[in-house]
Design a protein around this nucleic acid. Structure first.
Length: 470
RNA sequence: CGGGGAGUGGCGCAGUGGUAGCGCACCUGCUUUGGGUGCAGGAGGUCGGGGGUUCAAGUCCCCCCUCCCCGACCA
């Protein structure tokens, strides 16, 4: 056995993460601090994830649109909490065309303001509602401590923005997106179980009345906020004068939501499933679902492998042929393992002589000999199992690393390597601040049964999920 | 912004005043190929920038720049 390919996850998790990102050729740093080059393999994963999210976003009634990158600084200032929340991380353009601008423009950190300026024009009547738009875009939030995918100054995301006639309609949509877009994608596509709940006032989006979140547990027990869905009340409607005539003819402000998920999800994928050999991708997000490896040239191995790759593609599998027999077998195996390819088929003279091929699973590491004629079926069968295995492992890990805490001190202790459930009443009177000082935060609030609490700020009878977070 | 480090080949690093090196990666050839093969040869450097000391500076002194790590905010 040769030297380890990666720093073992248990030895130094952050270092392991960086090495996976580099060696699986997912991304690298850009020349400006905090910027990120997403490499072709990483981008291919993102495109698959994007397609899954986009389909679900449209299924809740959204239409895609595009709004400008540059926002007048004055727009940000219209909503007091919003500008206060985002000011520290704004990139501001002061010069254009060789001259100083009369009014500086902000590079969008999020698009509530500029989109709502349009929505104000588009919405006149209750018949125009609900209005549901989504955009895929890059946004910029100046980051002091960047980490590839998890926290970069520029990142890619989708942001949905809606206007409704009533508070109930807005709330229902915010929650529908949380469940049917985000949670469903995370569980069914990414194979990452999530904890859903309401953010505390402290963690709430700047300008929102209620923020809902999906929180995942990573391999080191830390939490990652994977998506948020906000009820905006009438805050932005008042700031941007979004009014409509209701059925009775009176002019009233619309109720709104916004919601987003970003390239940070790539980080979740890596940290939730990766192991000491590298990435482990769920089949739905694997650019290459099965690689057919010519183990060793000769005796028709190349031809048999090429034929199998063709058959797999015909069967709807994203399959690739690796016939680089001038590179050693071991190196190629290591490369595909780093990249997280779910199923590997090894074809060599020795296999063929026995009328078989070797099928290896990335998730369990299991290797089996199967007859040549049954290879396609064997691969599709295993692909169907990988997702459930990854999801099951992640859920088991989360459950093992989640404990019930009866005091702030117990919660801090438990949050060192997992999640703690804490009676939310203990957050009052500076309790949440004390958690914060111990580098621990409230990820979300839930009912004792794990359900979603009502909107608003009430803590009564709720359970706080507490953890260290990315 | 406060504290602590580091800038030497693509990446990671060594080099206490005297001919700029090592590992990985890269190129060529042979060898090997069923879990990161081995051997031989080769290409690649304004040692962050400027100034100073010295016969001689990657190394010592001064100034500047940049980056990284730890603390307060964040999808």
């Amino acid at each position: 056995m040769a030297a380890p390919v990666l720093t073992p996850r248990a030895d130094d998790f952050p270092r392991w993460y960086q090495e996976v990102v580099a060696k699986a050729e997912l991304a690298e740093n850009g020349p400006v601090r905090g910027t990120m080059v997403i490499r072709p393999y990483g981008y291919a994963i993102w495109e698959l994830l994007q397609a899954e999210l986009d389909r679900r976003i449209k299924a809740v009634g959204a239409q895609n649109a595009y709004f400008p990158l540059f926002i007048p600084e004055a727009y940000l200032r219209r909503e007091a909490e919003h500008v206060e929340g985002f000011s520290p991380e704004l990139a501001v353009v002061t010069h254009g065309g060789g001259k100083e601008l009369e009014e500086p423009v902000v590079v969008r950190p999020t698009s509530e303001t500029i989109i709502n300026a349009s929505i104000a024009r588009w919405v006149q009547s209750h018949r125009d509602l609900p209005l549901i738009v989504n955009q895929w875009a890059n946004v910029v939030r100046w980051e002091l401590r960047p980490r590839l995918f998890l926290r970069t100054t520029e990142f890619l995301w989708q942001e949905g923005h809606t206007a409704h006639a009533t508070e109930d309609d807005a709330r229902a949509l915010a929650l529908r997106v949380l469940r049917e877009v985000y949670e469903d994608t995370m569980v069914q596509v990414m194979a990452v179980p999530v904890v859903t709940g309401r953010k505390t006032a402290r963690e709430r989006f700047a300008g929102a009345t209620t923020t809902w979140t999906c929180e995942g547990m990573m391999g080191d027990g830390k939490a990652l906020q994977m998506a948020t869905s906000h009820e905006l009340g009438q805050n932005f409607a008042r700031a941007f004068d979004i009014t409509f005539s209701d059925e009775t003819g009176s002019l009233v402000h619309a109720w709104q939501t916004s919601w987003g998920a970003s390239t940070r999800l790539m980080g979740a994928l890596i940290m939730a499933h990766g192991d000491d050999a590298g990435l482990r991708l769920p089949p739905a997000l694997a650019p290459v679902q099965a690689v057919v490896l010519v183990a060793r040239a000769g005796d028709g191995a190349g031809e048999a492998a090429a034929a199998l790759a063709r058959d797999l593609r015909a069967a709807g599998v994203r399959a690739e042929l690796d016939d680089r027999t001038d590179t050693s077998f071991g190196r190629r195996v290591v490369d595909w393992e780093l990249k997280g390819v779910p199923v590997r088929v090894e074809v060599g003279p020795r296999d063929l002589a026995a009328g078989q091929v070797t099928v290896a699973r990335r998730d369990t590491g299991a290797k089996e000999a199967v007859p040549v004629g049954g290879a396609v079926a064997a691969v599709t069968e295993r692909l169907a199992q990988v997702h459930a295995t990854l999801l099951g492992e992640a859920a088991a890990h989360r459950d093992r690393a989640t404990v019930e805490a009866a005091s702030l001190a117990e919660a801090v202790e438990a949050a060192q390597d997992g999640f703690a459930h804490l009676p939310a009443a203990l957050l009052a009177d500076g309790g949440e601040q004390r958690l914060h000082e111990a580098a621990v935060s409230v990820r979300c609030l839930r009912t004792p049964g794990g359900g979603l609490p009502p909107s608003g700020d009430d803590l009564d009878g709720l359970v706080a999920v507490v953890a260290r977070a990315y």
